[in-house]
Amino acid sequence: MVKFEDVWLKYRHPARQGDAAPEALRGISFEIPEGGFRWLIGPSGAGKTSLLKLIYLAEHPAKGRIDILGTEAAKISRRDAALLRRRIGVVYQDFRLLPQLSAYDNVALPMRLARRNETQIHADVTEILRWVGLENRLHARPDELSGGEQQRIAVARAVVARPKLLVADEPTGNLDDEQAHRLMHLITALNRLGTTVVVATHNMGLVEGWPAPRLTIEHGKLTHAE
């Protein structure tokens, strides 16, 4: 399902300047079976987001082989990469909602890109917004929503098209405990329905509350993989 073999990542314009700019990821290997769930943990700057970017095809590795949903990422055409991205739901650490669209339209975006019909879109979007407790904020713009509400919109957008793979980067960062648990219920429900899930987080309380195999990353290296 998701398989990394000795994967290295080097940013072209490293944040830390100079000759000694280290690779963001070094020799990462792990495998997540279909329908699996993994916590991705590690200190800030360890490379969690970098690893997730490789999974959701937003970066190319400098070296190594990555298989996503049964396809070798390096070997697919641009078009197939786009179609593969549609099967991956992503919750970005910085949400990335479109400011000019309402909450409803932001969530509907992946379905519109996939050219689903508006009736289906309406049913799915309102249902998922109810799940994240925002059925009353359908028409609010992102700048009219709190950080936590924006985060829940971002989660709703990631899951609305029922992805085969869900990648969530710190999805509970702006949520209170109750909201965070509600969200984890949603994610585990999806996982039980067959979606493979990777969640990166600092929130060790959350990790403890929802036991699952962990990938631990430090200084760009995988120090622990279950």
Binding site: Y56, A58, R78, R79, A82, L83, L84, R85, R86, R87, V90, R96, L98, Q100, L109, P110, L113, A114
Partner: peptide, 16 residues
């Protein structure tokens, strides 16, 4: 730029 980058990440085709 922001919108297109996102749409692209969500799987929009270059053609679209």
């Amino acid at each position: 730029r922001e919108t297109i980058t996102l749409i692209h990440a969500l799987g929009a085709l270059d053609d679209d």
